[in-house]
Design a binder for these strands. Structure first.
Lengths: 337, 337
DNA sequence: GTTAGCACTTAGACATGACGAGTGCTAACG
DNA sequence: CGTTAGCACTCGTCATGTCTAAGTGCTAAC
């Protein structure tokens, strides 16, 4: 029994099953792929594969389907990267044009990726751990209400309305703004909590209270940029692959809606040196995704933020991986490496 | 055959069907509701209701289920408003606390509403047609790149990075900002397109080009606030009421994802004087929602923005309507009438 | 206008059996 | 020793038939 042929059989099973959604038997296998041996031989190979836990039979006399472990082996060792079609390349390329706003770029990206793969696409906002304060703006909305705006050098803007607890004039607010800006400009957002008290302390006592409130506001803004968010698209694709989620797509939708779950999942996916990381079925930490796979990769500065695709375990890994990788590359090109 | 009793029968059918998801027959009806007549009489009434197109029988010998028209009559004339439970009131109340940011408020609102109704909740961002320019900020990110920020008096902030096409110094930019701000402060966003050319014309020729670019940027920002957006939550609830969407929840998810569809739907729902508007099944302009109903109402300034719930036609209208109305009221209280 | 009774219709549950796909095993082959 | 052919055996699926419960429509009586 030759080892290479066994792998070849596994590959054939995965490909056929992904294509047909039906358990694949030894006979069909020798017909569709020219393996040069008879079905009886394949049966022996399949029995071996089953012993190794790579495939399984849903019931006594049906074909075999890959297990999570089988998919894993397929992804790691067998599958070849499938190049994108010309049309796909062009679609991605057109992303480059006419979008400068970060929100806009991410929005377009997920839409594209979900269409490309016919699955759910998610993209994480770029990490801002290295982002620095570019600008601070205070706007007086009412005598005690101040709109606080924090602008990072990455182009990200966060704003919030806060109550300063004492009435302020435009002039006083402007001088406070100047003080904050002077002290904090260029400070990494992550160091803001340490840097703020000094600024407050340097203010005139009469303004101390307001300054304190403003500092709290800025701190909240910085942490809300640290707190990560994501965009997604293509949830409707889940309904189409309804059949692939035996129980229901409910838990999957829940996971997607609980962004925290997805974000943790994405960040926990170790960066694979080959470029794209795959998390298959029960490998996922979240139970609701036991029948789903996630294909993701990093992009942007330091490849810290993730972009990825979620679909049924029975997914076309080579194509999906290619799409994710290509999109991530273009994304990095737009936003800077 | 008494007319009031016929309506009573319709009400009973709707209530039972919503409760049990099964076609309801004449016998079960007299048992569950004390109507004081026999099942034979009910049968006559039901035959009449069927002739009027208010109920229908899925097959020859099964009970009846309400038609869209039947639900409509139920909602318009029969159903009584169901008061919210104490716990529900409290849940809504707690929305009031500790949220000042508009995004935050809307986010919490949809979550709450979707949990309250076990359905999909949507809320539209408040219309800004009456909003006015409160503040304008230009920030130089690179010699030719300017971050443009437009702040409305409603607290809404929009920003975008634009390329001004010529190199600018901080000073020049500051003076441009002052000019724009002086001319435009207090201008309604809707009038911005008409007001901008005059400002550009008033600039020194050497800066004309940059001013033009900035004006275009502001215009885009204003229109992106005019262009409406929405937030939603609870899509996972769709999966649970899977059975209620015979075909698939796919089209529904699509409609939800294509925000344009939902936004148009919400705006087209005429404001009902009674407070809550309902669009039932095929009444919906979008085919994908043929088996869904939308319960919505206005909130905030002039009740122009909408908040609502989407679920299967077979929904508990009284409860849903009560929840939507209550949430809209609290929302208006937070954001101002 | 209401009721009782009855014939009629039909979906759904259940059993039955034929069929086909697929396996595992054994014995023969090169 | 790996490969192959052949065969008995196992199950899921589908078509078929039967039975039951639910529910209707109609008619005749109240």
């Amino acid at each position: 029994m030759s080892e290479p042929r066994k792998l070849e059989v596994l590959r054939a099973i995965v490909e056929d099953y992904v294509h047909s959604r039906e358990p694949v038997g030894s006979k069909a296998l020798v017909e569709r792929h020219h393996l040069g041996v008879s079905s009886a031989t394949i049966r022996n190979d399949m029995a071996a594969l089953e012993d190794e836990g790579l495939i399984t039979a849903p019931h006594t006399s049906a074909g075999r389907i890959p297990t999570d472990k089988g998919y894993r082996l397929f992804v790691d060792q067998i599958s070849a990267v499938k190049p994108l079609s010309q049309a796909e390349r062009r679609a991605i390329q057109s992303l480059l044009e006419g979008s400068d706003d970060l929100d806009d770029v991410l929005e377009r990206t997920v839409r594209l990726l979900s269409q490309l793969t016919n699955q759910v696409a998610v993209v994480q906002y770029p990490h801002l751990s290295r982002a620095m304060v570019r600008h601070i703006e205070f706007v007086l909305l009412a005598p005690r209400q101040v709109l606080t705006v924090l602008i990072a050098d990455t182009g990200k803007v966060e704003q919030r309305v806060i109550d300063v607890g004492q009435e302020l004039s435009d002039d006083v607010l402007a001088s406070l703004r100047a003080r904050f800006l002077k002290s904090l400009s260029g400070t990494p957002l992550s160091l803001l909590p340490q840097a703020l008290p000094a600024v407050v302390a340097g203010c005139e006592p009469s303004r101390r209270h307001a300054a304190q409130a403003l500092a709290r506001g800025l701190d909240a803004l910085a942490s809300s940029t640290r707190e990560e968010r994501m965009v997604m698209a293509g949830t409707a694709n889940l309904a189409r692959s309804n059949v692939d989620f035996p129980l229901s797509i409910g838990p999957v939708l829940e996971a997607l809606e609980e962004q925290v779950v997805m974000l943790r999942l994405l960040s926990e996916m170790a960066q694979d040196p080959r470029g794209v990381t795959v998390s298959i079925g029960r490998e996922n930490p979240y139970d609701g995704l036991a029948e789903a796979s996630v294909v993701a990769t990093g992009y942007g500065p330091g490849s810290t933020a993730k972009v990825g695709v979620l679909g049924p375990t029975r997914m076309d890994y080579p194509t999906t991986m290619a799409a994710v990788r290509a999109v991530a590359r273009y994304l990095s090109r737009i936003l800077g490496p």
